[in-house]
């Protein structure tokens, strides 16, 4: 641990947030023309982009075809200029592969996969600028992109992180807080039914504190849900007003 004081005596974090406060979320749906669905999200300084193609015929290896449900193909890439040090490759390294698998599992749990047997849905996410919480930014962006593509889901998938610093759980941790070596919880939630579809803990966290931190992460997810719902409603409202004009 370095000498950085992650939580001041007055209860403020390094970037001036309160422990339970999320970073500012800005998002936009339907940003691109080529894709069936697309969305852009900014969570503080983390910027992510998601595009969705499909459902379409299975491309490539036909042995991957699933006869009772849709095949979900995820690709996660980080722009070479997205991190402090330049990354030599944007995709295909082990970390990206792991992230891809997590995203695939997350969305398999949320999309109504049985509706499109023998088909494929591609979810491509791209991190343009990384400042912690990459997984959650990707999940939130991909959720919006899937909604934009009109693919039925059980519920929104909302993801958030939580950390634990000086006996206080903190929500939506940034890169600086992530890299100090403290525990990090990553949760992806179906907020309406309170079902956790992805859950991950890095580093050690005492069982006595676990519940507090998990509650903080879940609260983060619900806050994200409130923002995403508003964005979707605004977007649909705009579309509706455009259609009524023509």
């Amino acid at each position: 641990m370095s000498g950085l004081e992650l939580l001041s005596d007055q209860g403020f974090r390094l970037d001036g947030r309160r422990p339970r406060e999320l970073r500012k979320i800005e998002c936009k749906m339907g940003v691109f023309q080529q894709a069936n669905g697309s969305a852009y999200i900014e969570q503080g300084n983390t910027k992510a982009l998601a595009t969705v193609y499909g459902p379409h015929e299975v491309t490539g290896n036909r042995s991957k075809i699933e006869h009772d449900k849709v095949l979900i193909n995820c690709q996660y890439s980080m722009a070479t200029f997205s991190t402090g040090e330049r990354r030599s490759r944007s995709t295909g390294d082990r970390k990206s592969q792991e992230m891809q698998l997590h995203l695939k599992k997350t969305f398999e749990a949320a999309i109504l996969t049985q509706l499109y047997p023998r088909s494929q849905i591609d979810i491509y996410v791209q991190i343009l600028q990384a400042d912690g919480g990459n997984y959650s930014a990707c999940v939130n962006a991909a959720t919006l992109a899937i909604i934009d593509a009109g693919i039925p889901m059980k519920d929104f998938v909302c993801a958030s992180t939580a950390g634990f610093v000086s006996d206080t759980p903190i929500a939506d941790i940034s890169y600086l807080e992530e890299s100090q070596g403290g525990p990090e919880l990553v949760v992806a939630l179906l907020p309406k039914s309170d079902q956790i579809v992805e859950f991950q803990v890095n580093s050690r966290l005492h069982l006595d504190n676990f519940e507090k931190v998990l509650d903080m992460a879940i609260k983060g997810c619900k806050d994200v849900h409130a923002v995403l719902t508003r964005v979707v409603k605004d977007h649909v409202g705009q579309l509706a007003s455009k259609m009524s004009k023509t």
């Binding site: 691109f32 023309q33 300084n45 070479t80 200029f81 991190t83 402090g84 330049r86 343009l128 600028q129």
Partner: peptide
């Protein structure tokens, strides 16, 4: 200047075509 982690960056939209360029020095 859209990307803070790059030394220089720019996003161009030419109709629908969108290109993001990030420059990083080493």
């Amino acid at each position: 200047g859209t990307i803070n982690t790059a030394h220089g960056s720019a996003l161009v939209k030419l109709g629908n075509t969108t290109i993001l360029c990030g420059v990083k020095g080493e």
